Amino acid sequence: RSVMTEEYKVPDGMVGFIIGRGGEQISRIQQESGCKIQIAPDSGGLPERSCMLTGTPESVQSAKRLLDQIVE
């Protein structure tokens, strides 16, 4: 099973929602998708923050879907 890492951008203002209280939302996304998510510590003043998604292609797709649901 191939593991890939893909960069994915999320709106900087939504990072708090994505991480959730005490990190529980991001933990849930990682468990549900099976994908490891690393969010950049800051956006460098840009409107979007970079996330690194690491996992199988299916888990990366799944994580993107879950992130999109939060961001919308």
Score class of each variant (00 low, 15 high):
S50T: 12
G55Y: 00
E6N: 03
D68W: 10
Q61V: 11
Q69V: 13
S43E: 10
R49I: 04
A63C: 15
R49L: 03
S43R: 06
E24R: 13
I29K: 00
E24P: 03
V60A: 02
G22A: 09
C51I: 14
E58T: 10
K9F: 11
V10S: 01
I19P: 03
G13C: 10
K36D: 12
L67F: 04
E48S: 09
G16W: 06
K64C: 04
I37P: 01
I26Y: 03
L53H: 00
Q38R: 11
R28Q: 11
S50L: 14
T5N: 08
E58I: 08
S27N: 10
M14D: 07
Q31Y: 06
C35P: 00
R1G: 05
P47H: 09
G44Y: 10
R21W: 15
T54H: 09
R65L: 12
P47F: 07
D12A: 15
V10H: 01
S27F: 04
Y8Q: 03
Q61G: 14
L53E: 00
L66R: 09
G44S: 14
S62G: 13
T56Y: 08
I18T: 03
G16T: 09
I37H: 01
S59Q: 12
Q61M: 13
V60C: 09
G22Q: 13
E6P: 01
L66D: 04
E24H: 15
I39G: 01
G55S: 01
I39C: 05
P57R: 12
R65F: 15
T5D: 04
F17Y: 12
S2W: 04
F17E: 15
P47M: 06
G34S: 03
S2H: 03
L53Y: 00
G16F: 03
P41C: 11
G23R: 10
E7I: 12
D42S: 12
D42K: 11
Q69Y: 03
D68I: 06
P11D: 09
A40P: 12
M14S: 11
P11Y: 04
P47L: 12
Q31R: 13
G16L: 05
A40N: 05
S50I: 15
V71M: 06
G16R: 13
Q25I: 09
G20A: 08
K64D: 01
R1M: 07
E48K: 07
R28L: 07
E7P: 05
Q38I: 14
R28N: 05
E6T: 15
I18Y: 03
E24L: 05
I29D: 00
A40D: 10
I18N: 02
Q31W: 03
E6A: 04
R21E: 02
E58V: 07
I37N: 00
G16P: 15
G44D: 12
F17Q: 15
M4D: 07
V71A: 10
D42P: 14
G22K: 14
Q38M: 10
Q69E: 15
R65D: 10
Q31F: 06
R65V: 14
S2F: 11
G34K: 07
I18Q: 02
L46P: 04
G22C: 05
Q61H: 09
T56V: 10
G45R: 07
Q25T: 10
R1T: 14
I29S: 01
K9A: 05
V71S: 07
K9Q: 11
M52Y: 13
C51M: 15
I70L: 15
G55D: 00
E32W: 03
C35K: 00
S62W: 08
G34V: 02
I18L: 13
R28D: 12
R49A: 06
R28V: 05
Y8A: 02
E24G: 09
V15L: 10
S33H: 02
C51Y: 05
L66Q: 11
C51K: 00
G55P: 00
P47E: 11
L67V: 04
L66A: 07
I37T: 01
D68C: 08
L53I: 15
A40L: 09
I26Q: 06
S33L: 02
V60I: 15
T56W: 03
S50C: 12
D68A: 14
G34L: 04
G13D: 14
G23A: 10
K9D: 03
V71Y: 03
E72R: 15
Q38E: 15
E6W: 09
I29N: 01
P57S: 11
Q31S: 11
E58Y: 09
L67S: 01
E72I: 10
G20C: 03
